[in-house]
């Protein structure tokens, strides 16, 4: 007996299978193609030469190192700037929390290409004071990762009682520095970790600021390489992609383990979850 309800159920299942298969292919085929493309030999057969090239090409190696250094510096500066500020706001100046939140989420609505136009002038001064090392990009990258880092840390702080914890510690004679480093930070470890992960993933994929401010990082070099040696550049793309995927998947695991995350950030009006591409 096939009743209307059974038929409707079957229709729904068929719809789901079709949607998931078609879109699954759409997402997997480019990734598979990259892998195939990076090991292809024009005459036929396969080779890992282009992958070996990743470790050998001096430009590429230099760029990988630069990007890793940039990620590290960005994470450190972001944490140093954001954690004390956010804790301080919660403890002493809660009236400023809306303003801090607004500033932190502002970069989401300002396209990177717009920011770069305004940053040109600022970077003239940065170069004047600090030289023209690519590592100075750190300053701009902290701004780029700010919204994402802010959300993670905010969720972390919301899940502990900052005020009570620090009052207890202060009562025992701890200074502010001790409160932040010994009491707060250990309690929001997972949040800091996820803030760091997303920052690293974003910095490794960043192209707009680096290329238009005339610095080199991994993506800039990959892009250049694409003109001369497309197979190595695709291998490098895939490698950086896999690395970022792993980071972001670790991130989602950290997020899940934390359990009591604040719900539905996607419906947060102040914080449209715009994805930042490169």
């Amino acid at each position: 007996m096939t009743t209307a309800r059974v038929r409707a159920h079957r229709r729904l299942q068929a719809f789901r299978v079709v949607v998931l298969t078609v879109l699954g292919l759409f997402f997997l085929v480019p990734l598979g193609s990259m892998a195939a493309y990076s090991v292809r030999v024009p005459a036929g057969g396969r080779t890992l030469d282009f992958w070996r090239q990743l470790g050998q090409d001096p430009d590429l190696r230099g760029a990988i190192v630069t990007s890793l250094e940039l990620s590290l510096l960005t994470v450190v500066l972001m944490l140093v700037l954001l954690v004390p500020t956010m804790v301080w706001v919660r403890l002493r100046v809660p009236g400023m929390s809306r303003i801090v939140e607004f500033l932190c989420l502002l970069p989401l609505t300002i396209p990177a290409i717009v920011l770069v136009v305004g940053l040109k002038g600022v970077y003239a001064w940065v170069t004047y004071f600090l030289g023209d090392s690519s590592l100075t990009l750190t300053f701009a990258y902290v701004v780029l990762v700010l919204p994402y880092a802010y959300r993670s840390i905010d969720a972390g702080l919301a899940s502990i009682d900052v005020v009570t914890l620090s009052e207890a510690a202060r009562g025992l004679g701890a200074g502010w520095f001790t409160v932040i480093t010994r009491i707060i930070v250990p309690n929001i470890g997972a949040a800091l970790l996820s803030a760091a992960f997303i920052s690293v993933a974003l910095v490794l994929g960043e192209f707009t600021l680096a290329s238009l401010l005339s610095y080199t990082n991994l993506q800039v070099v990959i892009n250049l390489l694409g003109k001369s040696d497309s197979q190595t550049s695709v291998a490098a793309s895939l490698a950086s992609l896999v690395f970022a995927f792993v980071l972001l998947i670790l991130l989602s695991l950290v997020g899940r383990r934390r359990g009591a995350r604040r719900t539905a950030p996607a419906l947060d009006l102040m914080a449209p979850p715009v994805a930042k591409e490169g």
Binding site: P30, L31, G205, F207, T208, S237, L248, I249, A275
Partner: peptide, 21 residues
């Protein structure tokens, strides 16, 4: 999870993915 990752996937690598495809 995949969507969280793929929504961040853009830029040079994405362009090259489609060039390779």
């Amino acid at each position: 999870s995949a969507c969280g990752v793929l929504a961040q996937f853009g830029g040079v690598t994405l362009a090259f993915a489609f060039i390779a495809t």
